[in-house]
């Protein structure tokens, strides 16, 4: 037994020596790119002061730890990996599909106007692994914060060390507040990065113009009392409060969001607040989905809610999650759905 143990120890020591030495090389390698990055920092900053919209270009984003970071683009990204609905659609809307080397993670088909462009990109039906992303040798990765989790791509530093920039969508859970404003920021930022500022500005301006209609319609009237809810299978409800795009939109459109806090809301509360309009959020992974009917019926068929104005006057409107969560260019659709629901006569008569 002694012999055996001593042999085991020898093996362990041998292994740990190999382990240590490999660690050293690994660290050295990680250091080198950072050093070179540091040395290039000063000219970049100088250039930033000189002119706007030109490369090198510095953009604010986040890391997975939810800290503010800056990434610098030496030139227009040429090999882009973009994962999830709004990340893909925004790029297609900006007309830069030719730089996409890999895309994944759509919840629904891309909007009809982008279908043609979408067919030209390399889409991974079953998602991409870290290995596959690495093998594509991208120079820029756009995604939601969750994609940079420890078990997915890993935090952004790993990619930055390899000269690969990252951008995390502002409303994807990286900030405590989800706001309409952030959707604009994302579109404008991506516009800058891909040197498509005019296109980005146009998309944002169009949405802003549509949003402005809301306040115009609401002028001189009592604000419409509205709620954005998600009804669950067990008969409970989740409220989309002020800190969600859905809730923020209600306020921006000149209506009164009756529950400001996000989180659980009981049927009792809904009944006593008596909203005029309820938007009910559904996940539409399939076009004709059961979720759509459920989202309406769970509210309509709720006996306790039968005296609520929205139910009595049949003003319960389904709204796709993709239009109020990390919505990107679909924000427009969200705004339209809400305008129709909140101000049906005004919207028709415009």
């Amino acid at each position: 037994m002694k012999k055996f143990l001593s042999a085991l120890l020898v093996i362990c020591i041998a292994f740990s020596i190999v382990g240590c030495s490999t660690n050293d090389t690994a660290e050295n390698q990680e250091k080198n790119p950072t050093e070179s990055e540091n040395s290039t920092e000063s000219p970049i900053e100088a250039a930033k002061e000189e002119g706007n919209g030109k490369y090198p270009l510095t953009i604010e984003t986040y890391n997975y730890k939810k800290e503010n970071i800056e990434v610098t683009f030496e030139e227009k990204p040429k090999r882009v990996v973009t994962v999830y609905q709004n990340c893909i659609e925004t790029l297609l809307a900006l007309g830069v599909e030719d730089v996409i080397v890999g895309a994944a993670g759509l919840d629904h088909d891309v909007k009809d106007e982008y279908k043609e462009a979408f067919d030209t990109i390399n889409y991974y039906e079953k998602g991409m692994t870290k290995e596959e992303v690495m093998a594509l040798e991208p120079d820029f990765i756009i995604s939601w914060s969750s994609y940079f989790g420890e078990k997915k791509l890993g935090d952004v530093d790993f990619w930055h060390d390899r000269g690969i920039n990252t951008y995390i969508m502002n409303n994807s859970g990286i900030r405590a507040d989800r706001k309409l404003e952030h959707e604009y920021t994302d579109i404008l930022n991506l516009g800058k990065i891909f040197d498509k500022e005019d296109e980005a500005q146009q998309i944002v301006d169009e949405i802003k113009a549509e949003v402005a209609k809301g306040k115009k319609f609401a002028k001189g009237k009592e604000p419409v009392k509205a709620l954005v809810l998600q009804s669950r299978k067990d008969g409970t409800f989740r409220n989309y409060g002020q800190d969600s795009v859905g809730g923020d939109l209600i306020t921006e459109l000149g209506a009164d969001l009756v529950v400001k806090e996000s989180g659980n809301v009981t049927a009792e509360e809904i009944a006593s607040l008596n909203p005029d309009v309820i938007f009910t959020v559904y996940y539409s992974y399939y076009e004709a989905s059961v979720e759509y009917d459920d989202a309406i019926n769970r509210l309509k068929d709720h006996k306790g809610l039968s005296s609520v104005n929205a139910v009595k006057k049949d003003r319960i409107f389904p709204i796709k999650l993709g239009e109020v969560y990390c919505s990107g260019v679909r924000t427009m659709d969200g705004v339209k759905t809400m305008l129709k629901g909140l101000y049906p006569h005004e919207y028709e008569g415009q």
Partner: peptide
């Protein structure tokens, strides 16, 4: 999942395991 493995972690856990 072991997908999040990094040499840094391994340097930490290797001596402990052995």
């Amino acid at each position: 999942s072991v997908a999040g493995a990094k040499w840094k972690h391994i340097g930490l856990i290797f001596p402990v395991v052995i």
